[in-house]
């Protein structure tokens, strides 16, 4: 597990009473296969939630449902007051307010870093180009790679690419950030730089949902850890309690496997 700076500044990490995401009795099937079963989850503004679980447990599917990359068949998802329905306007609204980072970064290889960051603000948010570029440079500075702005993604290391992907999402000024295993495709020495960026984001009070196996990150940053297995939320708790005193047997088994060696 990557070593993380222990001095996390918690002054801005405040959970408000305002609901950011409300998932109610959500179900999803792939054909006959029941991927997500009766998911109930309320995320408050300012929360940092880490979702973990064995592979195939539906954790990625869950967060992909939140910005409609996958459609759910039953139940409801309300993001920032906007119900996720079949109405295209709602989908567009949610997607422009929810940022997402992928395991394989999914940067656009034919565009420069700067163009990657300004594309969506210009065409979705209709921001003037100059302004979009200023915003992009601001966030690129934030993820500490402003000098790479005119390079192409292929010229960057994996860690840098993932930080660009984070900056690209931030340029849309999202209220919520989703992370889908952001560090699992990275070499060990690059994991830290991405996690640092994510911690920085958390320190600024961003609402975050992270699917990750970085338990150190979960311990330090998260205010809630959710354990999923077989498409269900099996256990959720504050990180301290979750790690020191897991209740469910499956959680215990999972934690012993992932922390044991």
């Amino acid at each position: 597990m990557a070593a993380i700076d222990t001095n996390v500044d918690r002054s801005n990490m405040q959970v408000s009473d305002e609901v950011a995401i409300e998932i109610d009795n959500m179900n999803k099937w792939y054909g006959q296969f029941h991927v997500l079963r009766d998911i109930d989850l309320t995320v408050y503004r300012g929360e940092r939630i880490v979702i973990c679980g064995p592979s195939g447990s539906g954790k990625s599917t869950l967060i992909r449902c939140i910005n409609a990359l996958e459609e759910h068949q039953q139940g409801s998802i309300v993001v920032d007051g906007t119900p996720l329905s079949s109405d295209l306007k709602n989908i567009d609204k949610i997607r422009s307010e929810v940022g997402m980072c992928f395991q394989h970064f999914n940067l656009f290889p034919h565009l420069t870093i700067l163009e990657n960051c300004t594309l969506a603000p210009i065409w979705v948010r209709k921001v003037p180009k100059r302004e979009a570029e200023e915003t992009a440079m601001y966030f690129l500075e934030k993820v500490k790679i402003p000098d790479q702005a005119n390079k192409y993604p292929g010229q960057l290391s994996g860690g840098q690419q993932q930080r660009v992907a984070i900056a690209r999402s931030l340029c849309m000024k999202p209220k919520i950030m989703l992370f889908d295993e952001p560090t699992s495709a990275l070499d060990p020495e690059m994991i830290k730089e991405v996690l640092d960026t994510m911690i920085q984001l958390a320190e600024e009070g961003m609402t975050m949902l992270c699917v990750t196996h970085e338990m150190g990150f979960a311990r330090q940053v998260a205010n809630r850890v959710i354990f999923m297995d077989a498409g269900q939320i099996v256990e959720q708790n504050e990180p301290e309690a979750f790690f020191s005193n897991p209740q469910n047997d499956r959680t215990k088994l999972f934690l012993s496997q992932i922390l044991g060696h």
Binding site: A68, E71, H72, Q73, Q74, G75, S76, V78, P83, S85, S86, D87
Partner: peptide, 10 residues
């Protein structure tokens, strides 16, 4: 995309 029992859309 079809969302069968969507309380808000229906």
């Amino acid at each position: 995309m079809t969302i069968a029992t969507d309380p808000h859309g229906a």
